[in-house]
Design a binder for these strands. Sequence first.
DNA 1: TCGACCCCATGCAATTTTGTATAGCAGACC
DNA 2: GGTCTGCTATACAAAATTGCATGGGGTCGA
Lengths: 299, 299
Amino acid sequence: MGSSGPDWELWRTFDAVMREGSLSAAARALGLSQPTTGRHIAELEAALGADALFTRSARGLQPTVTAQALAPHAQAMAAAAAALTRTASAPTDAAAGVVRISASEVIGAEVLPSILAALRWSQPSLVFELLLTNASSDLLRRDADLAVRMTPPQQKALLAKPVGRIGLGLYAHRNYLARSGPLAKLEDLANHAVIGFDRDAAALRSFHAELALLPDFTLRTDNQLAQLAAVRAGFGVGVVQDPIAQRDPTLVPVLREAFVAHLDVWIVMHEDLRTTRRIRIAFDALVEGMSAHVRAGEA
Amino acid sequence: MGSSGPDWELWRTFDAVMREGSLSAAARALGLSQPTTGRHIAELEAALGADALFTRSARGLQPTVTAQALAPHAQAMAAAAAALTRTASAPTDAAAGVVRISASEVIGAEVLPSILAALRWSQPSLVFELLLTNASSDLLRRDADLAVRMTPPQQKALLAKPVGRIGLGLYAHRNYLARSGPLAKLEDLANHAVIGFDRDAAALRSFHAELALLPDFTLRTDNQLAQLAAVRAGFGVGVVQDPIAQRDPTLVPVLREAFVAHLDVWIVMHEDLRTTRRIRIAFDALVEGMSAHVRAGEA
DNA sequence: TCGACCCCATGCAATTTTGTATAGCAGACC
DNA sequence: GGTCTGCTATACAAAATTGCATGGGGTCGA
């Protein structure tokens, strides 16, 4: 019985069409010709039954409800295919090949570079890919090999190692403080420029718990790198990870007693990758590097 | 750039070869010819670089370390492909098509049948697949659409609904009790036939916590259906879910005060499937049916 | 030790899949 | 209103993939 579904290659085309929005664009992305992508989609539609996947138009293909329901699975398939080529990029027992790391934007921009630089110095054959997104992207969907996570490990299939706790505090640039009014009590914040989140529900909630009577933010953005940059530029007061703030002598902690929060940090990997040497090497390096980072913040 | 890895269809062949153990068997499973599968593997090996995936022998193909590292990703891909055909098996907005449900063996054999029977009565176009395994199989890997879980939801991408708590108790058949010695205190168990787990580490641990001084089991098996059958057959004393035991008047609860345990039950589904009507219908039916089951045990 | 069986590898013809070229259509912009 | 761009759909030839048949080699059991 070979009839267990269509040719997998058709799903790859489907995924590309969903992503690119038209047969022609998908053909370009895949390195195929436009008639071929069109035939692939036609073949899928024929194989799946009566209802069409797309409505054709001169402006491209618009996915039907069915196609929209299929899309996430196709993406999962694509992620697995990418993981396959990544894993095969070098022998399992070699300290070479591609390692794909998922982390938050702040960690990826402020902390990982030095860790990876050191690692590459000792392991010159490693190649890194960074997937920087705050929405903790799916290790389970194999979008990445390793991840730096701020939430406890959620899944048996994942191998997680805690590396400590990053303190969060309110900071401001000394130039800002020199020009602004007093900031000794939590209530003083009402007269200050406060940098915070815009719509990120999860982040807002977690900070609400810690900082119940926070005034309205003066600068709102969900991009934490922008928040950090704003604090450094002297715009106002914002939440900064202690170890990052302490590297910059111009940043001054404020309201140390009034605001306390922290992030528990984990390094996470797929259990499947346990035996792949380059992943293991990168895992260990991340554990060590992030541990050092966390300790630096405790000083 | 279309050169992002080999033809996906090759991975399907790879997965089949890993599963079946030989080119010929894989060819049979896929409905292809043996030369074709051989060529697929050869093409993969050529595409991935120097090191081979399999060592050829007259008894089949033996996977190398690299191939073993690739296998789980290929399985993930296969699961996603299966989910695609399943999802496409009927229009998204139809109360028809295949719904794949993961649950423990006991739930699948003792509880689900009546729930699904009732559901099928009101929705005759639904088709069900049961994946009965105690190792909570991966919803995230898209092995199933829905799951009945005894552990709290671990993943953001999953939509989980608690349906209550199933009590666990020690039970024995009345015929057994009529012939055996007294059973009033926990210590009396030493003189009884006790049915329990064999090697299932997780299960053993969870029961050790509840029943510290449990004697050595007289009948050991990790198959919980066999445990249940043994209790029903009057072999001895075993742990049974209250709602299941109470349906059978010949089963008598014993040591009610000494042993108390419970399982929190959740119905879990992929967030991706939220908009697929048949999955939603089955989800709601499972929530209602399992809630009723749980309540039945509280009587 | 022989035979039966299952396995992989290879040559060749048929089929399938793909690409090229082209036509037709809808919207954007001057 | 005309032109330009981007899209899909179709005809036909080239290329690639597949299946069939067959050969060679190893393992198991009588």
